[in-house]
């Protein structure tokens, strides 16, 4: 860790990461360092601003038409309006690999503060590429005086576009529509207090999802923007 405190070394590694010469294990290690180090991400962003425009000195080459057709099929499918949370195929698409799940489970267990009832339910939410992005975990609702859930962002570069917000949704059992759990900030660790009406529904929930909404949250009470993270609930106790 102290090795990476040297500002010159950090700058050199960031430059070589952006250039592409940082390869193999060094590249993977650097990527995982970035995840927990916002200052390092800024150094990388500075190097991207310096070097990446260089990429467009090369010729433009139009991709063949079938590439766009494949992309729009994938995007259109994930975007299907009616009851996406009911669709098995939808969830299958975002299945997390078991190895990633174990890692995130470790994170969730590490999130348990000592004096609290033990976490009983965990949902590892993955992004569109199947990478863990956010972990949500909670103890049994009845065991808590002020019911809450814990949220941990594990994504590499969590950022939010201006005038948008992130809203977390509970997917209750059966065919019930998503229930808002409130808005999430970009803080790595968050505790969200739950209103009474929601706590009763936590028990049978089978998934959670995060949507991008206009600033201030969904205007309709249902997700209106794209779902960027989602995961199934797993009872661990």
């Amino acid at each position: 860790m102290t090795r990476y405190a040297n500002p010159e070394l950090r700058d050199k590694l960031a430059a070589e990461y952006v250039l592409g010469t940082l390869a193999g294990r060094a590249r993977a290690r650097f990527q995982s360092l970035m995840r927990y180090d916002p200052a390092l991400r800024r150094t990388v962003a500075d190097w991207e601003a310096r070097l990446v425009p260089f990429a467009h000195a090369g010729k433009e080459i139009a991709p063949p038409g079938h590439v766009w057709r494949a992309i729009s099929r994938r995007v259109g499918r994930a975007q299907r309006r009616a009851g996406w949370w009911e669709s098995l195929a939808f969830w299958r698409t975002f299945a997390v690999t078991s190895a990633a799940f174990v890692v995130a489970l470790g994170v969730a267990i590490g999130m348990m503060p000592r004096p609290e009832p033990p976490i009983s339910t965990v949902a590892v939410m993955s992004d569109g590429s199947g990478k863990p992005a956010m972990v949500v975990a909670w103890p049994p609702m009845k065991a808590m005086r002020d019911p809450h859930i814990r949220v941990k962002i594990v994504q590499d570069h969590p950022t939010m576009a201006p005038s948008t917000s992130w809203e977390l949704w509970l997917l209750p059992g059966g065919k019930a529509a998503p229930v808002s759990l409130g808005q999430v900030s970009l803080d790595e660790l968050q505790v969200m207090k739950l209103p009474k009406a929601v706590t009763a529904r936590m028990q049978g929930a089978w998934g959670v999802a995060l949507s991008v909404e206009p600033a201030g949250g969904s205007p309709t009470g249902a997700p209106t923007g794209p779902i960027i993270f989602k995961g199934e609930c797993v009872k661990i106790l």
Partner: peptide, 8 residues
């Protein structure tokens, strides 16, 4: 598409 919301 999935991360357009991340763009700052």
């Amino acid at each position: 598409w999935n991360h357009a919301g991340d763009y700052a």
